[in-house]
Design a protein around this nucleic acid. Structure first.
Lengths: 191, 191
DNA sequence: TGAAATTATGGTCAGCTGACCATCTTTAGC
DNA sequence: GCTAAAGATGGTCAGCTGACCATAATTTCA
């Protein structure tokens, strides 16, 4: 039904039965470039898996500046976790950076799957742990690193994003201005 | 055995049997002011509950500047999550800001409790969700807020910390210099 | 393919921020 | 209670950073 997703799940040691059960409840959807999956103010009602393409979770501040909380490339998950968990309006938007294909589960269906498929529960816990570890790292970097160190860490951590994202989005993710990012890159060229 | 902790657990609807089972495996410990519970480089081997006092999780960067990831007041939990989960050396230290009393569980004991006490598992999941929501908020603020907005948000979110913490620690938590924090406070006095 | 939009870079400048140092106040701990 | 340490504030200054504007290159999509 959703072959790429099923391959992804099987790699994580889920049984064929579990894979089928999960996959059967997913609904596929395509997003055009710049199309929004979730707008700030709406309630996030779906768990989302990215089959192909690239999404980003962002917020536009009062002055109109964009700030990016997360990128979600193929074979990753995304949603606004607070809005999804509590079913309250989201503070952020989720949109497609590239044309993308995604799978969506209704919250009630996914909750049911988590309750009935222990392997999925275990798998989800692993994702959550990774998420927590990475958030900690990001907070520590935002506290301690210079703009140049932030950029260096970014291209080390996500080597392929440099070619897929406009620089202004990298700046919006790092919390520095595009001008500062350009200056860093210019300085690095001199070396 | 540990009355304050047991009261805390009971408030979260854990059965008396569960409370007893969890409490029985805890070992109490006292920390003097500035005493370290975990030093960077060590492996975090315990789950820790703060009965009284105040701990902080921090990192000292190359230049000698302190950066604070988290405060843990009475009735909260703390540990270095990545070091604990993977049993690898920690990048951060945990120390007592105030003289404190804590409870410690060995990782293997707590893992056993999580497996055998479903109510505890559920409870822990709630804590994890709160942690994730707050981390997201903190990342968004670090990306988008001015130093003054960060300070305002801090005293809104943690009203009582202002009286318990030296300002330099608040600055170290917000990722701004003590000088900038002083300037903000000075400016606010003028109004 | 071609026109419009987006993107990247550079110049300039104001001003915020942090580093360093000194002073005064408060707190800790014996 | 007393002494030493820690903390908070202020002055000064260099320089990093972002805002604004212009230009050139690239990409999108009709």
């Amino acid at each position: 039904m959703h072959p790429e997703f099923e391959t992804y799940l099987r790699r994580s040691d889920l049984s064929e039965e579990a894979v089928r059960k999960i996959s059967d409840l997913a609904v596929a959807r395509k997003l055009r470039r710049n199309e929004l999956l979730l707008s700030a103010g709406e309630i996030c009602r779906h768990k989302v898996f990215v089959v192909s393409g690239l999404l980003h979770t962002f917020n536009i501040s009062a002055g109109g500046t964009q700030h990016i909380l997360q990128f979600a490339p193929e074979n990753s998950w995304t949603l606004d976790v607070e809005s999804y968990d509590r079913q309250i309006p989201s503070q952020v938007s989720i949109g497609a950076v590239e044309p993308s294909t995604i799978l969506c589960w209704q919250k009630k269906d996914f909750d049911m799957l988590l309750a009935e498929v222990p392997q999925l529960k275990k798998f989800a816990e692993g994702l959550i742990a990774r998420n927590i570890h990475y958030s900690r790292k990001r907070i520590l970097i935002s506290l301690s690193a210079t703009p140049e160190e932030k950029y260096e860490d970014f291209i080390q951590t996500f080597p392929d994003y440099l070619a897929r994202l406009p620089l202004r989005m990298i700046a919006a993710y790092l919390g520095i201005s595009i001008k500062t990012l350009t200056r860093i890159r210019h300085a690095q060229l001199q070396r």
